[in-house]
């Protein structure tokens, strides 16, 4: 079955990297994956989204049209990128930034302290994207835990492996 995920927020939050890591984890699991993105001309700020599709079969159209899950890490992203999320889908928000859940969405919402956890547990907001990945993988089982850790560790700068693995586990622990 094809799984479609959208990771959205502001430019600079590392969501495109998170999308790449998730897709690479799917390849490690022996599945097919496509990652695509859209962003404005700005280097930072502006809204940003990364989309990932994972399937056992060939994936042709590379953009998400029927998301199973949307991650929104900014209020603007929660407004812009939730329209096509069906009520069977899941909306995950970063509770530090998203104060209003779109009224039109009637499905399951998880408001998680993603960036808050990054700041308090790891001292830096920049781990929020990796924490978000841990949470999504725990929640959906879309890729194996071993593969997401391997994919994260192969993408992060040398010397930061321990703290990044901790970030994945902190994300997983946000899902009760």
């Amino acid at each position: 079955m094809k799984q479609e995920l959208r990771l959205s927020g502001s430019g600079g939050q590392g969501l495109i990297l998170a999308g790449i890591i998730l897709a690479e984890a799917a390849l490690l699991d022996g599945k097919l994956a496509i990652q695509s993105q859209s962003y404005g001309p700005e280097a930072r700020g502006g809204s940003s989204k990364a989309e990932v599709m994972i399937s056992d079969k060939a994936i042709y159209f590379p953009k998400v049209t029927k998301p199973n899950l949307v991650l929104a890490m900014s209020q603007e992203a929660a407004r812009k990128y939730v329209d096509d999320l069906s009520d069977n889908g899941i909306l995950v928000t970063d509770s530090l930034f998203v104060k209003e859940i779109p009224a039109s969405f009637k499905g399951k919402v998880l408001e998680l302290p993603i960036t808050h956890t990054a700041k308090t547990e790891l001292g830096k907001a920049l781990f929020a994207n990796i924490i978000a990945l841990g949470a999504i993988v725990k929640l959906t089982g879309i890729v194996s835990e071993a593969s997401i850790i391997k994919a994260v560790l192969s993408r992060v700068p040398k010397g930061t492996e321990v703290v990044n693995e901790k970030a994945v586990r902190l994300g997983m622990a946000l899902i009760k």
Binding site: A23, L27, L32, A33, I34, Q35, S36, Q37, P62
Partner: peptide
């Protein structure tokens, strides 16, 4: 841009 920027196996 679709083909240039999308990531695929």
């Amino acid at each position: 841009e679709v083909i240039g920027h999308m990531r695929e196996k």
